[in-house]
């Protein structure tokens, strides 16, 4: 369920007994939590356990989360903690291959993991925004930004059936819409 409601609004709706809001929260963060669990080196089965535990934990603490706008960070921390517990339970240390792939900074592993996880959270929000942004923009932004390789304007023109000259303005319009949606959901760039 895609929604442009912010996390604060969804949490308030959950507390007010609106089950749709809980569904929306699960949809918004399911990819983030599952991805972090898998990236921690857990098996799919253990990742599934962590996934369930983290959402149960969230449900318990909905009324006590002090900064609902920081829910993504809260979930990242909770997921990492559960992953660590699960790894301890399995009595294994994370192998070198399980260390996050991209280490963009030199400030150490933890910080790079945190920044990677923030990007994962953003990625989940982008997915959710794409579900609401309209077909034309979804196709355009997916081709331009989510495909592994950036296609040329000619390829885009051919695949979307758009005149080449209208691709630039359409992209700018779609990016502006995407930015609006993400901002509504609480994802800003400082």
């Amino acid at each position: 369920m895609a929604t442009d409601s912010s996390d604060s609004e969804l949490i308030s709706a959950c507390i007010a007994g609106q089950s749709w809001a809980w569904d929306a929260l699960v949809d918004r963060y399911k990819g983030l939590i599952y991805s972090i669990a898998l990236r921690s080196g857990l098996t799919q089965e253990d990742a599934a356990d962590v996934f369930q535990t983290v959402f149960a934990h969230l449900l318990q603490h909905l009324t006590t989360i002090r900064e609902p706008q920081g829910l993504a960070a809260w979930l990242i921390t909770a997921t990492r903690r559960e992953c660590w517990r699960m790894l301890r339970k399995r009595q294994r240390e994370p192998a070198a291959s399980e260390v996050p792939l991209i280490q963009t900074t030199a400030r150490g592993w933890a910080e790079s993991v945190q920044s990677e996880e923030n990007l994962l959270a953003w990625h989940g929000f982008i997915h959710e925004a794409l579900a609401q942004i309209g077909e034309r923009c979804r196709q355009m932004l997916t081709l331009l930004y989510l495909e592994p390789e950036e296609p040329s304007y000619d390829e885009i023109s051919a695949r979307l059936g758009l005149p080449r000259g209208s691709i630039g303005p359409t992209r700018a319009r779609c990016l502006a819409k995407m930015r609006d949606l993400l901002t509504k959901m609480g994802m800003n760039v400082k």
Binding site: G31, L119, M178
Partner: peptide, 20 residues
Amino acid sequence: RQFKQAARVQGYVEPPAELA
């Protein structure tokens, strides 16, 4: 830049529908 980086981040995996 944040958008582009996040859009192309590796390792984002949707869980099985049953899990959600």
